[in-house]
Simulated scan of single mutants.
Amino acid sequence: MTAFFQGILGASSMALGALIAVAWQPGRKFLAAVMAFGSGTLMAAIALEIASSVYRSANVVVLVGGFLFGGVLFISLSKYIDEHGAFYVNPPLVVAMWWNTKFLNPMSWWTTLPIVR
């Protein structure tokens, strides 16, 4: 019975959020902050779950090494993808880049586009 009420409480948060969204339209910065907090919380929970199992089965050196390797891999892949044209898939970013550079040299943004292979 306790699980039933906890399920109802958890499911009611979606209905409550929908009612709040109908009555109040938050700004973009507020939405971005809430989404960043939620994604950070999810990533922290996953990392804590993984870290505790690795710490129990291995040692702290393996745990720290895994975090360092994962961070370096993430940054390296993100940089590689950005350098090979993924940045330009998002039209608002291209428009923002064009808007910021058009006053200096109207065609300077064109020369920064990578060659997609």
Results as ranks from 00 to 15, higher is better:
P92S: 03
Y80H: 12
M43K: 10
P91L: 06
F69Q: 02
A51Y: 02
G40H: 06
F103N: 10
S12G: 09
G10Q: 12
M97P: 01
F87R: 12
F87S: 05
A21M: 10
V72E: 03
V61D: 04
K79R: 10
S12H: 01
V95I: 12
S12D: 03
A11Y: 04
V95E: 15
F37C: 04
L31E: 11
F74M: 08
T101C: 06
Q6F: 12
M1I: 02
T2Y: 10
S13L: 14
Q25T: 12
P92G: 04
P26D: 06
F4Y: 11
G71R: 03
T2I: 13
S13C: 04
T41I: 06
L77H: 04
L63M: 11
S57W: 07
A3W: 07
R56Y: 06
G85Y: 03
Y80T: 09
G27D: 10
S78W: 08
V54H: 01
L42M: 14
L68N: 01
G65S: 06
L19Q: 10
V61Q: 06
V64H: 03
Y80L: 13
Y55F: 15
A47V: 14
V34F: 09
F67W: 08
L42S: 10
A58Q: 14
L19Y: 12
Y55E: 12
M107Y: 13
L42G: 04
F103K: 12
L31K: 14
I75P: 00
F30Q: 07
Y55K: 12
S52L: 15
A32P: 00
P106Y: 06
I46M: 14
L63N: 10
A33V: 09
V61A: 14
R56P: 00
S53R: 15
G17K: 06
A44P: 04
V89K: 15
S76C: 07
I8E: 02
Q6L: 11
W24L: 11
F37G: 01
L93G: 07
W98F: 10
F30V: 14
L42D: 04
Y55T: 09
F103Q: 08
N59M: 03
S53L: 10
F74Y: 12
S12P: 02
I50N: 07
A21Q: 09
H84Y: 05
E83V: 00
G7C: 00
G27H: 00
G65T: 05
F37N: 00
D82E: 12
V62L: 02
L93S: 11
E83H: 11
P26Q: 05
M35P: 00
V62R: 01
M35R: 09
R28Y: 02
V94C: 05
G65A: 09
A23I: 03
L104C: 08
V64Y: 02
G65L: 06
G17T: 13
I46E: 13
G71D: 03
